[in-house]
Computed example of a mutant assay.
Amino acid sequence: MDMELHGKIFLNPKSEYNSLYKWSLQEVDDNGAVGDHYIPWGFSLYFTAIELNIGERIGAQDDGDPDGAMTMNVERRITATLVPGDVRDTSDRHKTVYSMFRTSRIISNFQLSIEPLNKVDQRRNGKVWGTVSYSIEIDFEDLVTPDTVVFYLYVDMDTFERLERKISALQIDEAVVRVGRVDGFYAEWSPEISTSFVKVLTQGTEHEVEIPEGCDVNPPRLGTLGEIELYLRRANNLVERGRPPVE
C-alpha cells in the first residue's frame, strides 16, 4: 500500500516562547532539514457544502439458524461534500489550506456525515476521522484514496428527518459547517483567531511521532471534535439587485 510520504515527524519539547506554547510538532525531511513549529489549533474553522445527499442502506443477515428469521439492518445518513472557507464571508479570513503531515499535498476531500443518534452515540455530538492518501491493488487495478477528512455530526431523529425533508424539497441554498477544538489540527502560533494553513495528524501508523525520551507529551490526533455547528440558509430574493424600488 503506497502512501507517498516523506520525512518524519518530531515532537520538540522545547520552545523559544514558553509563554505562548510549550511544545510543537516539526517535520524533518529526508535530508534532515527541520520545518516549522506546529501547535494544536483550537479556534474555529469553516467549510462550505457544495453538495448534499441523502443515503439509506438496508440489509439482512441470518444468525446461522436455517429456520430463524433474518435480522434487518437499516442505516440512514446525510452526507455533504465540503470545501474550506465560508461562503458568507467575502474576505480571505476563513480560506484555510490543509495538508497532512509528511506530505506537501493540499487536502481537497472534506466530507460531513450527519447520522441519527443511537445508543452508542448518545453521549457525544461529533467526531472527526481522516486518512493519508494511499493506493491499493484490487483485482489487478490500482485504487487511489485521496487525503481525506470526515466530520461526523449526530442529531436526534426529529432533527435528522427535518433536515431530510429540507434537502428533498430543495429548501437549502447555503450550508456552512463550523468546527472548533479539533484534535489533530495543527498550525503555527498566531495572535489571531484565524489561520491560513493547517497540518493534520491522523491516528494511523504513517503518522508516528518521534518523542524524545523523558517527554510525557501525547500529541492530539484526529478523533475528538470539541465543537461542530451546521448553519443552513434559505434565500428568497424579493427585489432584483440594482433595480430601483417601486414608489
Rank of each mutant, 00 (worst) to 15 (best):
M1T: 04
E4Y: 10
L5A: 03
H6R: 11
G7D: 00
F10S: 02
L11F: 03
N12H: 09
N12Y: 05
P13C: 14
S15C: 11
E16S: 07
E16C: 01
S19V: 08
Q26V: 08
E27V: 08
V28E: 08
D29V: 04
N31D: 12
G32T: 04
V34I: 14
Y38Q: 02
I39Q: 03
I39L: 06
I39C: 02
P40S: 02
P40G: 01
P40L: 00
Y46I: 01
T48M: 03
E51M: 10
N53G: 09
I54G: 01
A60S: 10
A60K: 07
G64R: 09
D65K: 13
P66K: 14
P66M: 12
G68S: 15
G68V: 07
A69W: 01
A69Q: 09
M70C: 02
T71K: 13
T71S: 12
T71D: 11
N73I: 10
V74F: 02
R77F: 11
I78G: 06
I78S: 04
I78Y: 05
T79A: 05
T81S: 15
L82P: 01
V83Q: 06
P84N: 09
G85L: 07
R88M: 12
R88W: 01
H94I: 00
Y98C: 07
M100A: 11
R102M: 12
R102W: 06
R102H: 10
R105Y: 14
L112V: 07
S113I: 15
I114M: 12
P116T: 09
P116G: 09
L117G: 01
N118E: 10
K119G: 15
Q122K: 15
R123P: 15
R124C: 07
V128K: 03
G130S: 10
G130Y: 05
S135Q: 15
E137R: 15
D139R: 14
F140W: 05
E141I: 11
D147G: 02
V149K: 00
V149M: 03
Y152D: 10
V155D: 09
D158I: 13
R162G: 07
S168A: 15
A169N: 15
L170A: 15
I172S: 09
D173R: 14
V177T: 05
V177C: 06
R178T: 14
V179D: 01
D183I: 00
Y186G: 02
A187S: 14
A187N: 03
E188Q: 14
E188G: 08
E192M: 12
S196E: 11
S196G: 15
F197W: 06
V198Y: 01
V200F: 08
T202M: 06
Q203W: 04
T205V: 13
E208I: 07
V209M: 00
E210Q: 08
C215N: 05
C215L: 07
D216K: 04
V217C: 04
V217H: 04
V217F: 08
N218H: 05
P219A: 06
P219R: 04
L222K: 02
G223D: 08
G223L: 01
T224E: 12
G226W: 09
E227H: 13
E227R: 09
E229C: 06
E229L: 11
L232I: 13
L232E: 08
L232Y: 06
E240F: 10
G242M: 12
R243D: 08
P244Y: 06
V246K: 04
